[in-house]
Design a protein around this nucleic acid. Structure first.
Lengths: 227, 227
DNA sequence: TATACTAACTAACATTCGTTAGGCAAAATT
DNA sequence: AATTTTGCCTAACGAATGTTAGTTAGTATA
């Protein structure tokens, strides 16, 4: 394992401080102090302050975008959305501080980087919208404005870097799958509702047959409930 | 309609600028310029810069908290969650810039206001958690970590001030209900699945009867599909 | 060994920052 | 009418900001 370069260590430190205090409220002297040098020394590693922010935001933007490049085309929209969300969560929980800076501080990028960043973000969201649109078309998803849906879904999963920590023992993919499940299938206990619904249908069938074994029907219902 | 006070207008201007550039990156000279005076003049309306931030964050925090105070106790957990989410969205879309500053810039509050704010936020989230816990206990909600769920739900709905505009013609309550619906019931098209499930049961019944009218069965299936 | 590079330092720069103090004219109050 | 308050101005303060320039010592290279 090669030792971390000084520059990489500096970027790491910057990520941590930008996450805690925000980019604008973190001075180069703050950063230098935490890094153990004088502020002027930082310029032997970087051109300027903004380079740090750039190097936090753009690699992650690239990774997120790339993560959606190889979604298999033969999957259902539900499956593809699931995989897209898993990709997203896996990446933003990989380095939580970086992700939080990415989500909050990009606006301090100067032009043209700022616009470039926003365009990348827009294109990324577009990919989600497309999946949702396809899901609506195929009947898998409900007919809800795809922009609103996309923003809500992404915003929901963007809560993860704020609380997720690798040391917690949780697997990022598990968290991703869990959140995706909530978003796709909802919080409501539908499994139970569905079982009850089938239970009712079965009861109608029994009555229609006119078997007249009321006790047998009661048993069936109890069995459903214990599940 | 009373003319807006100078201080209120200043706070409005500050809200807009803090939203656009962030608190730390907005100088008093920026603010004064937009307000049409010199920076030193701002101090005849306010004590200091932070007072502006305080007056953006705390009233909204109060309103959000109050919004959950009168949830009827006789409702189901689902209903209460729906009402809580509607309350939340209604308030954060009332003044989107304020909400965005509230969500992003509180960290620039100095102590003890900052800790106070975080405590209020925590208590507010606690109320959501309680609803979710109750829903899990009653069987209405699936057994999913209530902290993760709360954060994801709130984060999802917190996307709204970033795109919602009153002038768009959309009603905030409609948006709130829509998002709540997605979160509670999911994006997946469950209604259709349920219908197909019943359709299958009906087909079994027909076969079991041994009527032998295959044509009739085909018709039933077609009829389900067109829905 | 001589030279070049690296990564740190100190000193300093020009600019910007949030804020205070004093002054003034208009509006409000006594 | 006299006084007070309000809301603006200019000037200035001390501190902070991102960065440059020159220097130095250690390391790497020719």
């Amino acid at each position: 394992m090669a030792p971390k370069s000084r520059k990489a260590a500096l970027e790491q430190q910057a990520t941590s401080l930008f996450r805690d205090k925000g980019y604008a409220a973190t001075s180069m002297r703050d950063l230098a102090t935490h890094f153990g040098v004088e502020a002027a020394s930082l310029y032997s590693h970087i051109r300027n302050k903004e380079e740090l922010l750039y190097n936090i935001c753009f690699p992650l933007a690239q990774d997120l975008f790339s993560g959606l490049e190889n979604l298999p085309k033969d999957l259902s929209a539900t499956e593809r959305l699931l995989q897209a969300l898993i990709s997203h969560v896996t990446l933003i929980t990989r380095s939580p501080d970086q992700s939080i800076v990415f989500l909050q501080e990009y606006r301090h990028l100067s032009e043209p980087a700022r616009t470039e960043f926003l365009n990348m973000r827009k294109a990324y969201e577009q990919k989600f919208k497309l999946i949702i649109r396809q899901g609506i078309r195929s009947g898998e998803f409900r007919k809800i404005d795809e922009k609103i849906t996309t923003l809500a879904l992404l915003s929901a999963v963007n809560s993860t870097p704020y609380w997720f920590r690798k040391e917690s023992g949780l697997e990022a993919s598990w968290v991703a799958t869990l959140l995706s499940d909530i978003l796709i299938h909802g919080l409501s206990n539908k499994t139970k509702s569905l079982q009850e619904s089938e239970g009712q249908v079965r009861r109608k069938v029994a009555l229609r047959k006119g078997v007249g074994k009321v006790e047998k029907i009661t048993k069936t219902k109890t069995s459903t409930k214990t599940k």
